[in-house]
Amino acid sequence: MICIMPEPDGRSTATIEQRAEHVRERANWMRRRFLRMIVDAGQGHPGGDLSATDILATLYFDVLRIDAANPMAPDRDRFVMSKGHCTGALYTAMAGRGLFPEEDLNSYLQPRSRLNGHPNRTYLPGVETNTGPLGHGFPVGVGIAVAGQIDEADFRTFVLTGDGELQEGSMWEAAMFAGHRGLGKLTVIVDRNRLQQGAKTEDTNGLEPLGDKWRAFGWEVVGVDGHDHAALLNAFDDACEPREKPRVIIADTCKGKGVSFMENQAGWHHGVPNPEQYAQALAELEAEMA
């Protein structure tokens, strides 16, 4: 495995191709690992996990300036998982980054496990705030960024939201305020897979024109393929340049990405693959890295 972690200034000396390959390998490992966790636990949110995997892998295995040995360091970058139900992807990313032992992943959703169905900061150092109910993580991320703005601190704040989550009113309270404050060290990533739990977002309570909405709230808007690691790295590199406005990266994603029978199927929001499905999923993911 190539090991290409960023320098203390957040920049890797590796080429973008090397960095993307590293993230790609880690994302593939995450997918295989959390599908096993979901099968063992008998429950989970595989569709959203697979949708968010490449974004989380890019953050945890390249972008985020965090010290696994000191996860509460005051100057750490903050990552807030506003779509808190996608813990398969989050926990594998955190374990892969060294925030807790990989073998702990075997306890996912088991009685008294630290790996609750939604992330809990009192169980797991590295979680910034307890999320799960939608519309919570983003306002907390805004508060973190305001604290950094007051202190003129160097840390950056990243928030990953679902797209269905943007139907919550608190998200737009937070967006409005972040735009008003000009929180230039805040980056939101929208996991824009166009499916919510029950149906397509646009058939439920449509979000488009989504970029225009963010721009109207005072944000810089960037669109990116949310499964293209090099494109994600470039978007994050660019987002970390000094700026006067908060930035949103609208990541075009596919719910269920990487497992053919789960892709773009709302039914895999929840769900557990049966043994045949699990074998097929693993075979597809292994073939991807062959």
Binding site: T129, G148, D151, E173
Partner: peptide, 25 residues
Amino acid sequence: HRLINVGIAEQNMVGVGAGLANGGK
């Protein structure tokens, strides 16, 4: 600089409060 007025938005106000606490305030 230490008076943060979020406007008429109580959900965001309390969330921002929790975030400020995370940031050491």
